[in-house]
């Protein structure tokens, strides 16, 4: 277990995409068996309609990950509105697993028990951070929009709390009630046919000028580029950030994890890792603007 460990922990964030049951299971089994990561987040964050299809397979995934010595955290929905979704949240909290809260809805029930604050709950400043720590939060995953300055200030409270920053993957930019994936097919969320399952790495949305700009994933909107904070890893470690999140994409995540692990352990330079990462990610550009206080879609050379 990684609790209290001050080293740099590598984590696999919750899978945002609607992969088939088989693909999902293969992915987590391979992460359990082959990936040098400390912690894995499982569970549906984007759309409650997807939950039933893989809920049955979750226990065997969790067991496999636990057996491999990984900390397992149960992620929860980012936007909760229906009675059914609220009940699902309450049911999750009943288990002994560590929970990642992504909607304030979870916080009341989690009061007093250790939990993770996910990136969909706004923690932008120290007072908010202090309050959530008093409520029981042990780790805070910062929003993708957070700048290095903000991360530094919140991570400086590292004695009281663990901080996690997403360092790989398409950046989540918004959540909604409406399903844009369905809408793009002329369907609605209620009649969706699970079209989000057709795009394992999300549906590209370009500007009217043909510039790739966004990725649609059900009710979620993400960046087109992969957020890649390899150049910034050393600086984040220096600030006291304790957890580094890789968000699953439809690429070889085991090798991605190995590249990040090597840079965190100073066994490889960021430049070397970037070159190797490009061979794994095809044509998808890299972005890192938010952490530099710039447009999220930009790439800032260090």
């Amino acid at each position: 277990m990684t609790i209290g460990k001050k080293a740099s922990n590598l984590t696999i964030g919750p899978l945002f995409f609607n992969w088939s049951v088989e693909k999902r299971r293969d992915f987590y089994f391979r992460i359990a068996d082959e990936a040098d990561v400390d912690c894995v987040y499982v569970g549906e964050v984007v759309c409650s309609k997807r939950e039933s299809s893989f809920e049955d397979h979750l226990p065997e995934i969790v067991d496999r990950l636990n057996a491999a010595g990984k900390e397992v955290v149960r992620s929860t929905l980012a936007l909760v509105t229906s009675e059914r979704e609220m009940n699902a949240i309450k049911a999750n909290i009943g288990y002994e697993q560590l929970i990642e809260a992504n909607d304030v809805a979870s916080l009341q029930s989690l009061k007093g028990s250790p939990h993770v604050i996910g990136p969909f709950i706004n923690v932008f400043n120290e007072t908010t951070c202090d309050f959530l720590v008093r409520n029981g939060a042990k780790r805070i995953v910062l929003a993708v929009e957070a700048s290095a300055a903000a991360i530094g200030i919140i991570a400086a409270k590292a004695s009281a709390i663990e901080t996690e920053v997403m360092v790989f993957g398409r950046q989540p930019l918004s959540v909604a009630m409406r399903c844009y994936h369905a809408r793009s097919h002329g369907l609605t969320r209620d009649s969706c046919q699970f079209v989000c399952g057709l795009d394992a790495d999300g549906l590209p949305a370009d500007t009217i000028d043909g510039q790739p700009i966004l990725t649609v994933n059900g009710t979620q909107t993400m960046s087109h580029g992969y957020g890649v904070l390899l150049n910034e890893l050393g600086r984040l470690q220096g600030m006291g950030v304790s957890h580094f999140r890789l968000s699953p994409q439809d690429v070889d995540m085991v090798r991605v994890a190995a590249l990040y692990r090597a840079v965190l352990d100073k066994k490889s330079t960021a430049a070397e890792a970037l070159d190797k990462l490009k061979t794994l990610t095809a044509e998808v550009p890299f972005i890192n603007g938010f952490i530099h206080g710039r447009e999220g879609l930009s790439w800032v050379e260090n």
């Binding site: 097919h185 002329g186 369907l187 609605t188 009649s191 046919q193 079209v195 057709l198």
Partner: peptide
């Protein structure tokens, strides 16, 4: 009609995949 067509197309895509 659009919805029916979209459903049809989706099924087609799944079959192809």
């Amino acid at each position: 009609l659009k919805t029916r067509l979209a459903k049809f197309e989706t099924r087609q895509k799944r079959t192809e995949a």
